[in-house]
Simulated scan of single mutants.
Amino acid sequence: MLVFAKIKSVKQKISSLKKGTSVGFVPTMGALHKGHLSLIKKAKKENDLVVVSIFVNPTQFDKKEDLVNYPKTIDNDLELLKSVSCDLVFMPSAEEIYSKNIKSEIFDFEGLEHQMEGKHRVGHFDGVGTIVKRLFEIVTPTKSYFGEKDFQQLQIIKKMVKKNNLPVEIIGCDIYRETDGLAMSSRNVRLTKEHRKAAPFIFKTLKEAKLKFGIENAVNVVQWVQNEFKKHPLLELEYFEIANEATLQTISTKELKQKYRGFIAVFAGNIRLIDNISL
């Protein structure tokens, strides 16, 4: 497994290895877990060469303390990447990526960025678009893999690729969960014992909301979820929305031949957890 920190050297190496081969790319912010490894395993099956980036991107954090507190486990990350036969790791510094100008490009994602996470994390998706576009330019992947836990992010990256005519196929991968249903996240390690025990309630509620969505209208289902969390002593609901998968616009009534998804953000103490479910 090769590890690089400089753009020039990683570009040269990928270029020398790429001749006639497909490149699978998994961008990460480190603190790797089995969810990340599932993406890498899928990339290994579908490509000749697999590249993983580890970069905690400063421009996508709307709160400074979240950036500072983001877990960093580089030695463990590298061991995990070796265990799944990753070929090449790119671990740049912020200065390497942004030079002396650490700020986001401004993107037009045609309204996708103003829904859900966009309402609560101003500028977040400009930061995501900036780093992903930059990494695509450096790595030049054939396919790139993203988990559906960040479904809104996945749709936004697909939109950016389409609008910028980038020659990469975006692959969405199923949410990887703990045995008790909690969506795997690097933030989970920061949960207290009590909050970790309570957190599976999020997915349990999503599954019940899915059943209700089959027989009730969207407004009633949203109200039911809100009421369930009002009764919970340890978890605070930030939002639950039912939205069209393609446009991410929230809905009040269902239409035939449309795909819908329930999106949720919850505070477990001061740790913010997100999840979603296809309806």
Rank of each mutant, 00 (worst) to 15 (best):
Q249S: 12
P167C: 08
S93M: 05
T130K: 04
I7K: 15
K210A: 13
V51C: 10
P71N: 09
Y260R: 09
K19G: 12
L32E: 12
A243Q: 02
I54S: 10
Y70G: 12
V221S: 09
Q153L: 01
K210P: 01
G123C: 07
F125P: 03
A183Q: 11
P27V: 07
S104P: 13
G20D: 11
N57M: 08
T247K: 10
R177A: 04
H36L: 09
T21G: 05
N276Q: 04
V56Y: 08
V68L: 13
D87W: 00
N57F: 06
L49G: 00
V50M: 11
V56M: 10
T253V: 14
M184L: 15
F151D: 09
E137T: 07
D48F: 03
V23H: 03
H120E: 09
R134I: 01
N57Q: 07
I242W: 06
K158G: 02
I54L: 11
T192Y: 07
V26G: 10
S93E: 13
S278L: 13
D87K: 03
T142A: 09
S15V: 01
P141V: 11
A199N: 09
A218L: 01
V50A: 06
N57C: 09
E238L: 06
F229G: 09
R261H: 05
K230D: 13
S9Q: 15
N165V: 07
K254W: 15
G214I: 01
G24L: 11
I97R: 04
V128Y: 11
E105P: 00
W224H: 07
V168D: 09
N69I: 00
E245F: 00
K149M: 10
I251H: 02
S83C: 06
M116V: 05
Y239R: 10
I102N: 05
F201A: 07
L80R: 13
S185C: 07
L191S: 11
N227F: 00
L78G: 05
L2K: 15
L17D: 05
I40Q: 11
V219L: 12
G111F: 06
E255V: 11
C173L: 02
S85Q: 13
L67C: 02
D77G: 04
E169A: 12
K193E: 15
H114F: 11
L17P: 00
S15L: 13
E236T: 14
L154Q: 05
L211I: 14
L112E: 10
K13H: 13
V128W: 10
E79L: 14
L154H: 09
G127F: 03
E148V: 02
T21R: 15
A94M: 03
K63F: 14
G129L: 03
L182Q: 08
S104W: 02
R121K: 12
F203Q: 05
A183E: 12
K158E: 12
L191K: 06
L256S: 14
L81W: 04
V168T: 14
E105R: 12
H114Y: 09
D75C: 02
I106C: 04
N217Q: 11
S252R: 11
L206C: 07
I74L: 15
D150H: 01
D275S: 11
R261G: 06
N276P: 05
V221Q: 04
H232V: 06
Y176D: 07
A94E: 13
F263Q: 09
P167E: 07
D87T: 00
K82G: 01
A265Y: 01
S83F: 01
I271R: 07
I40C: 09
V89H: 04
